[in-house]
Computed example of a mutant assay.
Amino acid sequence: MKHPSGHYTCSVICIASLMLLFTSCSKNDKESKDLTPAPNVQEMTNYLVNQGFSEQQIVFGKDRVVIESDIIITLAELEQRVATWKKEHQPGVPQTEQRRGTYIVSNVYNTNIKFYIDPAVPADWKTAIQGAVDNWNAVNGTRLGMSIVANQASSNTRIFMGFENANWIARAYLPGSAGTPGVSVEINSNFNGLAANKKLFAITHEFGHTIGFHHTNQLSGTLIPGTPNVDPNSVMNSTVLPWNGFTAGDVLATQILYPQ
């Protein structure tokens, strides 16, 4: 996710923006340099570029890849996606807006996606998390549901605090290829002073990543048919804004991906 100053700050993260955008940061750059490249790193990079991600915004770490600053995929999951993609010979993606990833959350999980909040998460972020759950639950005409649970073992997605002196607010994992929600959302404590309405936007955005949405103002993912080509106030844009509700495009996209 991207800060209004124009610098990258936020993957939902799913995570998914916010959004100060899943773009490069010094720590991840160091991880990339320290990593001995596996033989399939180039193949994984080619796959991600084919999906519309910019190669300059792909950072490989020891066991994961961070894309556009706030979208995370484990290397094991990425290898599985590459194998599936090669088998199915998927074509290139359209270059427009209201975008989804290859995988969304299956019906086994999507009526009640369970979030666990680590005890170290500050109260104001917990308020934003509850607000984000309420936001997604209030979208009419979908089967999508979310809740907060007290036991990590019973949850689908863990929300925890991290710290990096970098311009991402939060970041999240995308859904797994087995239809599971993104496994975690990490919040950067470097932005604990962010305004409450921007915290709410950021967490709502990252939850969008955990259920399969990509950034609406980037070229990755696949256009969701029937959604607008331009939606500057979409919650899935990569720049953090004060929360002002979902756009009509956000609602329609959710209804298409998770119909009742």
Results as ranks from 00 to 15, higher is better:
33 K>N: 04
88 E>I: 05
127 T>E: 11
204 T>R: 05
45 T>Y: 04
208 G>Q: 03
91 P>I: 01
26 S>T: 14
230 V>Y: 13
77 E>P: 01
232 P>T: 15
209 H>L: 05
227 T>V: 11
65 V>N: 00
103 Y>G: 00
6 G>C: 12
18 L>G: 12
164 E>C: 03
152 Q>D: 08
175 P>E: 10
130 Q>H: 10
29 D>H: 00
66 V>S: 08
129 I>K: 10
12 V>N: 12
72 I>G: 01
42 Q>C: 04
3 H>M: 15
257 L>H: 01
162 G>R: 08
118 D>Q: 13
182 G>C: 06
54 S>K: 10
198 K>T: 09
256 I>C: 06
215 H>V: 02
50 N>Q: 14
78 L>C: 11
205 H>P: 02
117 I>V: 14
191 F>H: 08
123 A>Q: 11
224 I>R: 12
238 S>D: 12
177 S>R: 10
23 T>D: 11
202 A>R: 01
95 Q>F: 09
191 F>Y: 15
100 R>I: 00
232 P>A: 15
162 G>H: 03
12 V>K: 14
62 K>N: 13
247 T>V: 09
97 E>W: 07
232 P>I: 14
50 N>E: 08
149 V>I: 13
210 T>A: 15
202 A>S: 15
124 D>M: 02
95 Q>N: 13
1 M>L: 12
